[in-house]
Amino acid sequence: MARSFVTIALPKGKLLEDSLKVLTEVGIPCQDVSEESRKLIFPLPEAEVEIIICRPTDIPTFVEYGAADIGFVGKDTLLEQNKDVVELLDLGFGYCRFVVAMPEEKVPSKLPDGTYNLQELNNQRVATKFPRVAEEFFTEQGMQVFPIKLHGNIELAPRVGLAEMIVDIVSTGKTLRQNKLVEVAPMLESTTRFIANRVSYRMKYERINDLVEKLRQSL
């Protein structure tokens, strides 16, 4: 295996287009890479690159095991999975925020400083794709809650009584409004990150570092 050759894992879905754009800008010709083609592996021998396309939540796993040397993945996924990977660069795109939200009619009372009194939500159920992030946030507030892990359509949970509130990522807040949910606390922000396998980062340092520097300049 040549130390200049890298396998890059890219997330299918909304981050793919921006990911391909920045890679093209740094000289990796990925015009043929697309989700529509149904191919999962795209060899680009001239650029000494192989691109694989995976589910966003699987990217840290591919990279942790070294099946991919590097990957593009949202910070939200990284925070939730806590995998042993090297986080090298903030690529800036794919911005979103983690929030706590709940139905309008159930929001807690406000404190003198204008924020919601989260303590009223102790021991309630939180529907989320991110139980780890949620639990850590509430623990920091000195609270205990019961996270319920869901895989999609989180907004549905409080409407049918599965949970009192949700922890989810929002970019514009439109989905929350459509479902009559109100943000009661901001948590964290997330953007796409460039990650590397810890061994690849050492063994293929020159190549990976070169990519990082080029990406940093093109941002």
């Binding site: 099946a67 396998n197 810890r198 061994v199 050492r202 063994m203 340092y205």
Partner: peptide, 28 residues
């Protein structure tokens, strides 16, 4: 190779620290 980013988990190590890597294995 020399690499000062190798810090073996802040455990009992006090001096030189090292890791060995082989291709295809994602951890030292």
């Amino acid at each position: 190779s020399l690499d000062l980013g190798i810090l073996r988990g802040f455990s009992y190590y006090t001096g030189v620290v090292f890791e060995g890597y082989v291709p295809g294995v994602g951890f030292p």
